[in-house]
Simulated scan of single mutants.
Amino acid sequence: TVAVAVGAPLGALVATVAGWRGTFFAIAGLGALAGAILWYRLPRGIVGTRLPLRMRLAAALRPGVMPILVTTILALIGAFTVFAFVAPFAIEGGGLNPIALPGMLLAFGVGAVIGNIGGGQAADRFGATRTVCWSLALSAAMLVTFSLIPMFLPREIAGPALMAMMVPWGIVGWAFPPAQASRIIKLAPDAAPIVLSLNASALYLGVALGAVVGAAVLRYGAPADLGVVAAAFPIVGLGVVLAGHLAARPVAMPAE
Rank of each mutant, 00 (worst) to 15 (best):
D190M: 09
R183Y: 08
G214M: 10
A112T: 14
I171S: 09
M165W: 09
P193G: 09
M142H: 04
G214K: 04
C133E: 15
Y204N: 15
C133P: 00
G173L: 15
I157Y: 03
V113T: 12
I149M: 05
A216M: 12
A128D: 14
G127A: 14
L196F: 05
I171M: 10
I157C: 00
R155G: 01
R130K: 15
M151I: 05
V172R: 05
V213T: 01
L148Q: 03
L196C: 02
M166P: 03
P178T: 11
V207H: 04
S201P: 09
V213Y: 05
P160H: 09
I185T: 08
A230L: 04
L196D: 02
G159D: 02
G119P: 02
L198R: 14
F126T: 11
V167C: 01
S135C: 13
A215K: 05
F176M: 03
L138P: 00
A164K: 03
I194F: 06
L205P: 01
C133G: 03
A224P: 00
L138H: 12
W174R: 11
V212H: 03
A141V: 10
M165I: 07
S197G: 07
F176P: 01
A215M: 04
P223D: 00
L218N: 06
V113W: 11
N116R: 12
G221F: 10
A222P: 00
G120S: 07
P177Y: 14
G118E: 04
D190Y: 11
L203Y: 15
S147V: 10
L209K: 08
G159A: 02
L196S: 13
G206N: 08
L136Y: 13
M142A: 10
V167S: 02
M151S: 02
D124I: 08
G119Q: 09
A216G: 02
P178V: 12
I171V: 14
S197N: 08
P168K: 13
F152A: 00
D190A: 15
G221W: 09
G111Q: 11
G159R: 03
V207E: 00
A192Y: 11
P189A: 05
I184V: 15
A128W: 13
V228N: 06
M151K: 03
R183F: 11
M142L: 15
S201H: 10
L218Q: 02
A181P: 00
A215Q: 08
L136D: 11
P177S: 09
N116I: 12
A188L: 15
A137E: 00
L203S: 13
L148K: 04
L226S: 04
D225N: 10
R155Q: 07
V229T: 08
A192L: 11
V144T: 12
G159H: 03
P178M: 09
A161K: 08
T131A: 05
